[in-house]
Design a protein around this nucleic acid. Structure first.
Lengths: 242, 242
DNA sequence: CGGTGCCTTGAGGAGTGTCAAGATGGGTGG
DNA sequence: CCACCCATCTTGACACTCCTCAAGGCACCG
C-alpha cells in the first residue's frame, strides 16, 4: 500500500496530487516530470461570481483549468446584446490556443476556483507531448458537439422547450447523483435569470414565465429562486423537444 | 524548374499532386510516404446536391476531405424540425474522430467532390503523426469559433440581421475575390431558401421576405433566384448587427 | 402545354419582447 | 432584532416580430 502510493505519487507536485484535472482533465496527459515543470509556474486561485477571467485585457496570456464552479463564455454584439456560447465545468480547460486575441469573454458565473499557467508553458508542452494535444483535441471536439446541440436549441426550439432543455443540461452537469438512469434530480442553478436568458436567446421575463409554468404544472419545485428539484426527469425531458 | 518540381513532387501520389487539401487541408501534415499510404485506400468521387454523406447508415466508417462544393451539417429534432449546424467548404475535413456514431447528418448542398478514406487509416496516422493531430485540432478550434459566432446570430439577431449575416458569410467563403478589403462581391447561393431557413432558425417565407427587402432597398441584386450581387459589402455589414 | 419544384406575396394570429409595477429575499446598519 | 435597501425575480398589459396558412408566380422539363 505505502509502496504503491509512493510509486504513483512520487514526484507529483503537491499542488496536483488531489487535483481532478490530473485525472479527467488535460493534465492527465502529462508525466510527473512535466507536471513538476508546469506546477512551477502554476497557481490556484478562487474567484467570485462575476469576475472577468478573459476579455477586456487582463489574463489573456494564461490558460486555466476550472477546478470548481461554473464559468460562462459570452459573446456580445456592438449594441450590447449578449449571448452565452458555452458553460465550463470542472475539470474543463479554459483558453483558446493558437490565437492571440479571443473575441470571447469568460466570466465566473458562480464562485469558482481555477488553476492557471502561462500560455507559453502549455504551448511548449503541446509541442513536446502529442498526448496533451490529443486531450485538447478531444475536449475541443466535445465542446463543438455541445455547441452544435445548442444551435438546435437556439434555432428551433420554443421558449418552454429551451428552458426545459437548459434545466436538463444543468441537472446532468451539476447533480453528481444524476446518471443516465436517474429519475430525479436536485441542484442549485449556477446562473441568474439574466444569464439563463442570455444562454437561451430569450428575455429575463420569458425565462421567468416559463419557470413559473413548469412549477405550476408540477414538473419542478423551486426554493429560494435558486434551488431546483425535479421529481421526474422524464417529464422534463418530454418538454425539452428532445 | 524541372528539377525543383521533381524534388517537390517526388513520391507524391498522382491523386494528391494537384489537391488543395495537401496545402491548406489536413493532408498538408503528411509526408510523401504517408500520402502514398493514405492514397492507396483513398478515392475521389463526385456527389449530386442532396446526397446523404453521413447519417442514416452508409458511409459512417470513412472520413473525407471536401475538394469542391458545399456540404451542410444538420441536426434534427424528433418531430422533424431541422437545424443546419455547420457548412463545410473546400478543403475542410469531414467526419468526427473518436466517436462511433455521429448524431449529425451531412448532406451535399451543392454538387461536390470529395476525397474519402477509411476511418482506420486516418486514425492510425493520427497516432503516428502529431502534426496531423495538430491540424485537426486547429480545424476543430476554427469550427468551434464559427459555431459560437452562429450561436450569437441564432440567439440574438433579428430575422433581417440573420439574413444579412448569412450573405456576408457566404460571400467571404465563396467569392474568391473577396478579401478583407473588398468592397463588393458576387456569388451563387449554395443553399436553397429552405436550407437558408434551416441555417438561420427561420421559415422559408421569412427568409424570402428579408431577401426581397434587401433587394428593394438596393443592398443586393438577385438574378435567377441564386446569383447574388452585393455592391457595397459595408452596407450589408451595417445590417448584419455586427 | 401541363406538370413539378422552388420561390414570392398576402392576411391573420401565436409567441415573445417591451415596458411598467410589484413581490421577494438577502444583506446592512441602527 | 428590526427596518431598510438593493438586487433579483415575478407578474401583467400591450406591441411587434415572425410563423402559419393559403394563393399565385416563375423556371425548368417531359
Amino acid at each position: 500500500m505505502t509502496v504503491r502510493q509512493d510509486i504513483h505519487s512520487s514526484g507529483i507536485p503537491v499542488l496536483c496530487q488531489s487535483c481532478e484535472a490530473r485525472h479527467r482533465g488535460v493534465c492527465g496527459a502529462l508525466d510527473p516530470h512535466q507536471l513538476v515543470e508546469l506546477a512551477k509556474t502554476s497557481s490556484r486561485h478562487s474567484v467570485e461570481p462575476g469576475s472577468e477571467l478573459i476579455g477586456d485585457a487582463e489574463t489573456v496570456d494564461s490558460y486555466s483549468n476550472v477546478l470548481s464552479g461554473v464559468v460562462k463564455l459570452t459573446k456580445s454584439l456592438s449594441d450590447g446584446r449578449q449571448q452565452i456560447v458555452g458553460l465550463q465545468f470542472a475539470p474543463d480547460f479554459l483558453g483558446r490556443p493558437f490565437k492571440v486575441e479571443s473575441e470571447i469573454n469568460a466570466e465566473a458565473a458562480t464562485a469558482a476556483s481555477l488553476c492557471s499557467f502561462p500560455k507559453t508553458a502549455i504551448e511548449r508542452m503541446m509541442k513536446e507531448s502529442p498526448e496533451l494535444e490529443h486531450r485538447m483535441l478531444k475536449q475541443t471536439l466535445n465542446e463543438l458537439d455541445e455547441a452544435r446541440d445548442w444551435m438546435v436549441t437556439l434555432g428551433r426550439k420554443s421558449a418552454s422547450e429551451k428552458v426545459a432543455s437548459f434545466l436538463l443540461m444543468i441537472a446532468r452537469n451539476i447533480d453528481p447523483t444524476v446518471g443516465p438512469t436517474a429519475r430525479s434530480a436536485t441542484f442549485d442553478l449556477p446562473l441568474t435569470r439574466a444569464d439563463i436568458a442570455d444562454f437561451l436567446g430569450l428575455t429575463i421575463e420569458t425565462v421567468s414565465r416559463q419557470l413559473t409554468r413548469l412549477r405550476t404544472d408540477g414538473v419542478i419545485r423551486i426554493e429560494n429562486n435558486r434551488r431546483v428539484m425535479v421529481d421526474s426527469l422524464s417529464r422534463l425531458e418530454q418538454r425539452s423537444g428532445a
